[in-house]
Design a protein around this nucleic acid. Structure first.
Lengths: 140, 140
DNA sequence: GTCAGTGCAAACCCTTTGCAGAAAG
DNA sequence: CTTTCTGCAAAGGGTTTGCACTGAC
């Protein structure tokens, strides 16, 4: 998973193309960071990482790109904090702990939490996703 | 539950006092709306309702009061939409459907959804709350 | 040349804050 | 009186938008 490797770049390129997103330079920069491993990053964090060694992608493009990736299913928006959105590069079904003290978001092991049943949805609607957030704070 | 009745006002007054919130005029206006029935209102909606027949409470006071009520456990913040916070006057444990098309928030019958088990929390943390959001949209 | 993509700065919108005046006890 | 609340307007902060420029085909 070397972020520099040619193989990894090819893999990321394919992933974008499969989602119907043309792999421009800036999108590749952002995608390579996100897809390097499953992680939760805010737009600001992505902006900082991608521009760590000099300006590469503008703020507007980071926001636009993350929004695009989310619409295309490449990342998942996690809404736990009214002040910012997190983007999760793990799109498989799983849930989250949110540390309200630190703002840290971590995965819940998929097998350690199950919903007992799916309730009847409101009339005329279909489920789009289920989010479970367990809010935690430093004990005592 | 007549919002005008003296009994209801007394009840609301007591509820505020029990939570350690002094029942000022503006807080009473807001509390009476919220506690009339279990409901989900954004700050803006509260502002509109409370000031429907003439200005009664300022925007700043609505935000401050809702934040205070939330800290005191009188209402529960529901974070489902990055653009606004909902305040739920039903503080008993329950979960929500969120209609992403309409922005409508509705309760899930408490008995129709159960978590199978509580996963192990991250080290040094204690649970503060569990939120389950089922996002739905108009079918077909 | 055309059109999608990008960058910058300004605009947006919900929310918070600073501070002076008003109300509560 | 003293302290807490409230209101106003301004500031804040994440996100979006308008528009001109760039670059890929």
């Amino acid at each position: 998973m070397d972020i520099e490797s040619t193989d990894y770049r090819k893999e990321v390129t394919q992933r974008l193309q499969q989602a119907g997103v043309s792999p421009t330079q800036q999108r590749m920069e952002i995608a390579q960071i996100l897809f390097a491993r499953p992680q939760h990053l805010s737009a600001e964090q992505v902006l900082n990482i991608v521009n760590a060694q000099g300006p590469v992608v503008s703020k507007a493009t980071v926001y636009n790109t993350l929004g695009l990736f989310a619409r295309k299913g490449l990342v998942r928006e996690v809404i736990v904090d009214p002040t910012k959105v997190f983007y999760d590069s793990n799109t498989s079904e799983h849930h989250h702990f949110y540390n309200v003290d630190t703002g840290n978001l971590t995965d819940i092991e998929p097998h350690s939490l199950k919903l007992e049943s799916m309730p009847t949805l409101p009339d005329g609607t279909q489920a789009e996703g289920v989010d479970v957030i367990i809010r935690v704070r430093h004990s005592s």
